[in-house]
Design a protein around this nucleic acid. Structure first.
Lengths: 118, 118
DNA sequence: CAGGATCCCGCGAGATACTG
DNA sequence: CAGTATCTCGCGGGATCCTG
C-alpha cells in the first residue's frame, strides 16, 4: 500500500491511479476481448513492451485486484491472466473509450480505407 | 518517407495515446464538470501539478484538438480552457470511469464514511 | 495571471544475462 | 515458458527565475 498524500482523493483520481499505467489500459482491453491470455500472448499483443514492463504492469493490476493470475504446475510452465470480477466491471469504460477512438478515427481520415488488426 | 513501424494501431491504442498523459484524464474530468476553467483554477484542482507540467499537458490536449484555449486581451491576462466538440464526446468515457471508481470506493471501505471533495 | 527558459536530478524503463 | 536480477542511460518532470 502506498502512503496516502493526506489529500482528499476523488473517485476519478483513484480510478486513474489504478488503470493509468503505461500499458494497463491496453492490457485490460485485450483481456476483455480475449478473456484469458498467457504471458507471451499478451506480450505479442503489445508491440514494444518488454518482459520487465509487462511483468510489472501485470503485478500492479494484480495488486489492485483487477487481474487474476493462474499458474499451472506444468512443464513448460503456463501462466494465464484474466480479469477479476472488479476488472470486468471496467468493460463499459473500455467500450466507451473504444467507441470514441473509432469515431475519431473515422472523422479524421474520412476517405481512406481502414483495416482493423484488433 | 518515414520507416513505417509496420504495426497496425487499433483505435484503443490511439485513444489512449491522446488522453493517456499523466494529468490528462483529470484535466478532462474537471473540464467536463466545470465547463470552462482558467489556468490557475485548473492548477488548484490538480494538487501536485507544476505549472510546467500543466502547461505541457494542456498544450498536448490542444494539439489533439480535445481542448480549446481562449486568450483574452486583458490586463491581467486571462486564459480559459474548455473542451472542444471532440473532447465533449469523451463524457461517456469519463462518466463510466467515475462510476466505476465510486462503486469500487464503496465496496472497499464498506463501513467507513465518505466525503467527496470533487 | 499565465506562462517561457534553464538547470538539474531521480527513476522509469531498456538491454542483457540467468533460472525454475 | 515465464519470469527474476543487474546495470545502465535518457528524459520526464521538479525547482527556480524571468516576462508580457
Amino acid at each position: 500500500m502506498k502512503s496516502a498524500p493526506a489529500h482528499q482523493r476523488c473517485a476519478v483520481e483513484a480510478a486513474l491511479d489504478a488503470i493509468g499505467g503505461k500499458w494497463k489500459g491496453l492490457i485490460l482491453y485485450h483481456l476483455t476481448r480475449s478473456g484469458t491470455l498467457r504471458f507471451n500472448e499478451l506480450k505479442r499483443l503489445l508491440p514494444g513492451v518488454t518482459q520487465r514492463m509487462l511483468t510489472k504492469q501485470l503485478r500492479e493490476l494484480e495488486a489492485e485486484a483487477l487481474v487474476l493470475r493462474t499458474v499451472y504446475a506444468e512443464v513448460p510452465p503456463r501462466v494465464e491472466y484474466r480479469l477479476s470480477a472488479e476488472g470486468l466491471e471496467l468493460r463499459p469504460v473500455i467500450e466507451a473509450l473504444r467507441e470514441w477512438g473509432v469515431r475519431r478515427e473515422n472523422s479524421r481520415g474520412a476517405g481512406t480505407a481502414h483495416a482493423h488488426a484488433c
